[in-house]
Design a protein around this nucleic acid. Sequence first.
DNA 1: CATGAATGAGTGTTCATTCAT
DNA 2: AATGAATGAACACTCATTCAT
Lengths: 219, 219, 219, 219
Amino acid sequence: MPPLDPAAAPRWRRRKEDRPQEIVAAALDVFAERGFAAARLDDVAARAGVSKGTLYLYFPSKEDLFKAVIRAAILPNLERAERMIAEVPGPSFALLERLLAMVAELIATTRAAIIPKLVIAEAGNFPELAAFYHREVIQRGFGLLANLLARGVARGEFRPMNIDHAVRLIAAPLLMSAVWRSAFDAVAPMDVPALIATHRDHLRRALLVDGETPNGDRS
Amino acid sequence: MPPLDPAAAPRWRRRKEDRPQEIVAAALDVFAERGFAAARLDDVAARAGVSKGTLYLYFPSKEDLFKAVIRAAILPNLERAERMIAEVPGPSFALLERLLAMVAELIATTRAAIIPKLVIAEAGNFPELAAFYHREVIQRGFGLLANLLARGVARGEFRPMNIDHAVRLIAAPLLMSAVWRSAFDAVAPMDVPALIATHRDHLRRALLVDGETPNGDRS
Amino acid sequence: MPPLDPAAAPRWRRRKEDRPQEIVAAALDVFAERGFAAARLDDVAARAGVSKGTLYLYFPSKEDLFKAVIRAAILPNLERAERMIAEVPGPSFALLERLLAMVAELIATTRAAIIPKLVIAEAGNFPELAAFYHREVIQRGFGLLANLLARGVARGEFRPMNIDHAVRLIAAPLLMSAVWRSAFDAVAPMDVPALIATHRDHLRRALLVDGETPNGDRS
Amino acid sequence: MPPLDPAAAPRWRRRKEDRPQEIVAAALDVFAERGFAAARLDDVAARAGVSKGTLYLYFPSKEDLFKAVIRAAILPNLERAERMIAEVPGPSFALLERLLAMVAELIATTRAAIIPKLVIAEAGNFPELAAFYHREVIQRGFGLLANLLARGVARGEFRPMNIDHAVRLIAAPLLMSAVWRSAFDAVAPMDVPALIATHRDHLRRALLVDGETPNGDRS
DNA sequence: CATGAATGAGTGTTCATTCAT
DNA sequence: AATGAATGAACACTCATTCAT
């Protein structure tokens, strides 16, 4: 029970609980601007409004901070996608359409789109990080898609297929779009939602039992 | 058998003709192991069997050495693909099939597959490098594919399409495969040719006017 | 007596207040021994009893450290000279005598005498440094002398003269003495105060309205 | 006796004799632009139109090349001054005037004016060089002046004086002018001949028995 | 004589991490 | 809990000198 005497209340309960997320948000910004290796913890600390030493109170190393950044940027979106699939009952392809549009939107508009590039760049130097990302992000994301596809096949909506391959082929343009934004947007920007819309059309013909149905775009 | 008398062995030998390629080959190895930023020129020199100073006789900076590595690894393959398209007269989709198989093979078997990862990792810190790669590799590769698609459409083999999008959707699984090999092969290896074969099947249905033709896999 | 147990000795101690001057003093020593360009920051750090990285906590570059060395070595003396001229009311030539003697003494006995040599040596390669020294040291020193001469002329003590030239002619033997000590003292040492005393006699005849007054040396 | 058969004459007696002076001239240029330490032998070789290895056929080290540069730039002028003093019979002060004007002219117009700065800068790192310069240039120059002064005193033209000091006081503004041109001309150029003319006027009053004689400028 | 390819020691600067306060 | 002064290892690039050709 907290003390009722206001004079006894700590004067600076300065959001001890918020510190980690503030640091993680600052780190995402700095990593996005400079890449992981070139990012300076000085800059992260400055942007988070703390001292450099404080970072080490919450994260034992730069690499661990990186993992926290990945978790914070990706997991909420993964969970959102998982909920969408679990809750929405309609035709499987319609679900896939919504999923593609959602990810395209995320890639086109949020800072989190930089994460794949960062992981790709550092995977070689931090195998543990590669394993972490594969386990916590890729496998979950692929699993989610695989479930959707399996459901569609079971319902007779989708043709029989090698689900593993299909998952990767569905994901590839999304990954490429995220990477492109991170690496080449300055030299040749790209309309991610439009590209993914075309991807959806390709997928309709490739996956659906009656992919030739003329009712193209409803999403 | 070389003389064992060390006084008789020259400290070095003139190799003006061969040095550049030897250095570039060593650099590709080291860059592949450590990434560009983390690679030490000491290691490159040691692996090439020369002193560090010698690197600077042939390449004015680490970044220029990187460009030379890219050129050496990519351009011969690009030229090979361009020749293939120019010379082979058959149906456009058959050409596309051969192209996909060739690239899949390169990605699955050669060290050059590491290049996209390296460029992606450094594009942010070396904008000039991103521009170089976009100009010398991506635009040429995309242009080559665009020509092939335009020819197919003109001949009535392919449906009318947004060629720009189609090119990127064809390339995406190849890029993803190269990146995967560079980043996640240790944790979860991947059968690139098999994936690209499925990609080809998807593309047949997505691109061909009569994509439903049953003669699936001959390649 | 300090404890001999090495585990009890802290690896370092906070010295935020004193560090800059300690580093500057060490830098003056090393620059004097090797010259600016040949001086190694490793040596400066070692002599200051800090690590090389610590230098960069206080000075953003070697060149900036050089400027701090110049300021620390010269400005106190300039200020002393300025005070002397402002406070002492007597005949202008007597003031000039005291000024000459003071500078001669500084040149003959202090490490600061090395500064002109260092600046001369590096001016070509660091134009910004030359401008800095001209602005912060030469102009102030020349201005101080010019004031003294103008006062003497106004009072009828000195002949009318080109003050700009006179200032330089007064300064030249001082500069030469400082440079000589820095460059040739090992091969042919020089009695700076005696030379400057003769300089004073020359100046008496050259500058004073009645320079022939027979009372030569009183200083 | 040279062979008369023209076919036996060497086809490319390519000025084997001129090489050293060409190299020395190139070196003076490069040393003047960059200073001794920062000068690259690559640049010297390029400017002399030879290969870098060729430099070592004529000069065993960079320092020896420096000595040759000094000799080539200074000795002819010293000899010219010595001849002037030996041959011209007139009043001693008139001789001194001509000497001052000649040196002022050299300082104001020739590349050799950079030499004192170069020697000053490197004296600390090459004591042997300092000794060389002191012996070959300074002592000879000072001796020449000392002779002139001694002659003037003997003839009753000059007051009795400490000749050693007087020599240095005469030389100081010349040295300062040379150094100024090398170090500060870019930030504040200086009219050397005008300054030295005022120096001459000061010296007239300081040295001559009847220094007050009103016939100021005839030089 | 002349070349120029090759050497390799040398150093200013950065930054993740530690730890005295 | 928080600070920020201090550490020290790491690395690209230069250039006088050597020597195989």
